[in-house]
Design a protein around this nucleic acid. Structure first.
Lengths: 218, 218
DNA sequence: AAAAATTATAAGGTACACCTTATAAAAATT
DNA sequence: AATTTTTATAAGGTGTACCTTATAATTTTT
């Protein structure tokens, strides 16, 4: 009694994760990175990757990593779009807090067919970005952003997005007042932290978090 | 990697099906009827029924049928409520045809937690029936709430409801971002106002309004 | 009371996506 | 070139909820 439709949830989740984590379209993503993202054992990841590869969703280059096939990328983008639309619905219409919305959208994105999600888009006024500032496919980003960790000391910029997203980081980012759109200046780089100025305040950000905060250098 | 939360989807589905198909609270529902409803073999139904019975969700009377335990009935009602609310959302706000809405709601009802569905209820104007007039079971309030006016300074809590409702207050509450579900902290009590913090903002609420805003102190 | 029809239960099987342990192969480092 | 580390693969296991076939127990009908 499977919902019949099409692709298994897990397949979609893997494809979207690869899309989110990869460095670029042709850069293979290591299975280790995937394993860490999902919290699954390397063996399990490998097993699933073989299946996805056999089914043509991805290209698997042993000892190197995986890239998405054209088919796989289309599925990933479609899922990502549904995810962001639900996120917007949850935050904009139901006032669900940011961090929670991400998690719940992760379940809703699989529950409703595309037709429904497109109606949802219309209801929301066809938004082009999710609450975290990440563009909703198929629209394109018009800016170029850099991972906060790479931004040189002294540079000024604008927070563009938090990616990859995780509930914990989202909560921290919110607490620090580092929501997408806000202006920052990088004050100093330490061994384990980056200090940035947000308005009048100084905030120390662990490198771990700095890895997922993206900046458009101005 | 199970969403951990609570009851398995399948358990909820069985309990709701029993609720729907049964002739009355004390009338045992035959396993055959259940099997036909789901399209599963009698053996599979029987197997699942034994599990549900062992876990206390239902009472099983061999050769006779099953009834819901108090626990099981509560779960069935909660699921039914979520189902009807999603149905109304799909038909009322997204113009999804009824037949489809029923099916899609069957997936959505499992995807979002109760907190979200309650916000959905508010968004929809707390409907008391589904599009076909079938009553929506009321939400069981499991929390204890206090009038905002009585909440001590420094306390954190969650807005549970606006009661009694009036158009003016609802407008204000919406403008302040104080819709049910949102988290607040009481900052100070003045002669004619109460200052609360909502996310990053401070909001001054006239005592008059504070009388109709209810808080679950956390 | 006997036969027929239901309902229960035992036994064994499937798919899925995880798991661990152990070994083999390749890549990176010394 | 040898060692260490990373990645791959083999083998066997888990739980859930479905499946079929076959037999046993009970209820209903004749």
């Amino acid at each position: 009694m499977e919902s019949s439709g099409g692709i298994r949830e897990r397949v979609e989740d893997y494809l979207a994760a690869i899309y989110r984590l990869r460095g670029g379209p042709e850069l293979p993503l290591s299975l280790t990175a995937l394993g860490e993202y999902f919290g699954f054992s390397p063996v399990s990841i490998h097993e699933m990757i073989l299946k996805l590869s056999q089914q043509g969703w991805i290209h698997y280059y042993p000892y190197r990593g995986v890239t998405l096939s054209a088919q796989g990328e289309a599925v990933a983008l479609a899922l990502l779009r549904r995810h962001r639309l639900w996120e917007r619905f949850l935050t904009d219409m139901l006032d669900v807090p940011w961090a929670e919305a991400h998690e719940i959208a992760g379940a809703l994105e699989h529950a409703a067919p595309e037709s429904v999600t497109e109606r949802l888009s219309t209801l929301l006024g066809d938004p082009v970005s999710c609450p975290h500032g990440v563009p909703i496919p198929p629209s394109k980003r018009t800016y170029i952003d850099t991972c906060l960790r790479q931004v040189p000391v002294g540079a000024r910029g604008r927070v563009t997005r938090i990616a990859p997203e995780s509930g914990d980081v989202l909560r921290d980012v919110q607490a620090w007042g580092l929501l997408p759109g806000c202006q920052i200046t990088v004050i100093e780089q330490q061994a384990a932290e980056i200090v940035v100025q947000v308005e009048e305040r100084l905030v120390s950000i662990p490198l771990e978090s700095a890895n997922v905060i993206w900046i458009e250098v101005l």
